[in-house]
Structures are given as structure tokens and as C-alpha cells.
Design a protein around this nucleic acid. Structure first.
Length: 267
DNA sequence: AATGGGACCTGCGCGC
DNA sequence: TGCGCGCAGGTCCCAT
């Protein structure tokens, strides 16, 4: 599920449901997801604790469960979380809560990660992470691009450059800004970078409002799909007409990832 | 610094 | 129907 709007949706929904709930028992159905500590230590440390705070940094979900203990979720490509009485088909790790609900980390491809750490700021992935988009003013955003020479779309999804943007929203943002995904960053004017900023801002806010995009396995906390997918302008639309100019949308592998764009109105 | 490939995994849809 | 292939919203590690 994985990009900023999806993770933020889950964070907000969890905040209303599991704060102060106690973890009665942890059932590890797939120990491959537990990283950094053994499943035994993981259970020992987390069982009996309660959810105190829920944070998000980039695409990482962070739960404070004790004064100096944080539970970390990274959903990677095909993970999602569900809160329900029923056990889901792809449940890999289940946190049985004091209200009898099952807080479940589900993952089709089992590439997701669950960790336990004393301070989330010491996570390797967090240490090298770039700024949060919503912490940046337009001027600060434009500053980030100074001395960069790479292609714009892969750069937007580089987590050490900017946290939270993935393949789908990066291509939506450059489409919105009328910029070709392969444009070299040093060829972009301040005005064009400003346009990318306002596009990203609008797209991410709207996607959060719509509770994320369910293109594949992602679901909201209650199992419903997110509602942003129908609003995507280029993602997955190869061969269909561009909403802006009518030209056929193309797909090309850029930076190793499938990228959809309009070759006519993205320059 | 930047880019490309493979690895980690499973399941789906497509063409033959 | 069955099979093989390509594809999937992420990230790490290695090589050039």
C-alpha cells in the first residue's frame, strides 16, 4: 500500500481505534516479517504493552507502546492493516487486543517488515530519510533540487531526497505539472519546480481525503478500498486518452519502474 | 553522484 | 484448461 496518503490514512484511522488498547497476545504466523529481533524476543517485549502514540514518517508507521519501545511497520509493496474480529487470509502477524479485536498486519507478498526499537529516530531507514513533504514551504522544496542532475520522477520517489512519495503519486505529480518524467532536474525552472510543489500538495491532500488509492491490495483499516484510484490521471492508463490533450498515454520504464505519462503535454 | 541489475516474495492476468 | 511470462504502489545491495 504504501505511499504517504495510504499510510497517513491508516495512521489517522488507527489513532481513533487502538490508542490505550493493550496487546494481549501476538500471533506470528509468518516469522519472516519480524526483523531485527527473534520472534520470541519480539513477543516478550511487546505483549502486555499498550498503544500510546501513533506516528508516521515517510511510508513508515510508528507505534509507541512503552516509554522506550516503539513498534515499527513498513508495508512495502503489498502490505495492509486490518482491525477486525475475523482473521484475514493474508494475515501474517496478529495483535490480539484487549477489546477482542485483532489488529492484523496482512501482506500478500510477505515483503513487509515489523520491528521493535527503543527509539524510532534510530531506525536506519529513518536516519537517511529526506524531509516530510508537508513540513516544507515552497521555497524550501525548491532548495532541495539545488545541485541535483538526475531525472525528476525517480528523484521524487527517492526516500533519502523526499519522504513518502512513491511510484504512483510521483507520476501523477509530474503529469499535473506538465513535466516529462525524464526531464533532468537541472533543466527545470523555479516556476516549474513551484508547479510540482503545488501539484504534489494538492494531489497528496486529496488522496488523504479520499482515504488512499486501492490499486492492488491496499485497504483502509476496516477493509474498505480507498477512493482515490478513480481520480488518477495517468497511472495505469496506457493507451487511453490523456484527460488534458486527448493524446494516447504511454508507459515506459524509467529508473526501473513502470511510468505512465502523456508524451504530448508533458515536456 | 547516478544508474542498472538482481534479490526479496506471491498472485494475477494475459497470450498461446 | 494449463502453462509460461510479465507485471505489481518498495527498498536494499552490489557493480559500473
Amino acid at each position: 500500500m504504501p505511499e504517504l496518503p495510504e499510510v497517513e490514512t491508516i495512521r489517522r484511522q488507527l489513532e481513533k481505534k487502538i490508542i490505550n488498547r493493550k496487546i494481549e497476545e501476538i500471533i506470528i504466523k509468518d516469522k519472516r516479517l519480524i526483523k531485527g529481533v527473534s520472534p520470541r524476543v519480539f513477543k516478550f517485549e511487546a505483549e502486555g504493552a499498550s498503544f500510546k502514540r501513533i506516528l508516521r514518517r515517510g511510508k513508515v508507521l510508528i507505534f509507541q507502546i512503552k516509554e522506550k519501545t516503539f513498534l515499527i511497520f513498513h508495508l512495502r509493496i503489498s502490505g495492509w492493516v486490518i482491525l477486525s474480529k475475523n482473521i484475514e487470509k493474508f494475515s501474517r502477524v496478529i495483535f490480539r487486543l484487549s477489546d477482542n479485536n485483532n489488529f492484523q498486519f496482512c501482506d500478500q507478498r510477505a515483503l513487509g517488515e515489523i520491528r521493535l526499537i527503543g527509539d524510532w529516530r534510530n531506525l536506519a531507514v529513518v536516519k537517511k530519510m529526506g524531509p516530510e513533504f508537508f513540513d516544507l514551504k515552497e521555497k524550501e522544496f525548491i532548495e532541495l533540487f539545488k545541485n541535483k542532475r538526475t531525472k525528476i520522477k525517480p528523484l521524487l520517489m527517492d526516500q533519502s531526497f523526499l519522504a513518502g512519495i512513491g511510484n504512483a503519486y510521483a507520476q501523477e505529480a509530474v503529469f499535473c505539472a506538465g513535466i516529462h518524467p525524464q526531464r533532468s532536474v537541472d533543466s527545470l525552472s523555479k516556476k516549474e519546480l513551484g508547479k510540482i510543489y503545488s501539484c504534489l500538495s494538492a494531489i497528496l491532500k486529496e488522496a488523504i481525503k479520499k482515504k488512499g488509492s486501492s490499486l492492488d491490495t491496499y485497504r483502509q483499516l476496516n477493509g474498505s478500498p480507498g477512493n482515490y484510484a478513480p481520480l488518477l490521471k495517468v497511472y495505469g492508463r496506457e493507451g487511453q486518452a490523456c484527460f488534458r490533450c486527448g493524446y494516447s498515454i504511454e508507459r515506459k520504464v524509467i529508473g526501473g519502474r513502470g511510468t505512465y505519462f502523456c508524451p504530448h503535454c508533458q515536456k
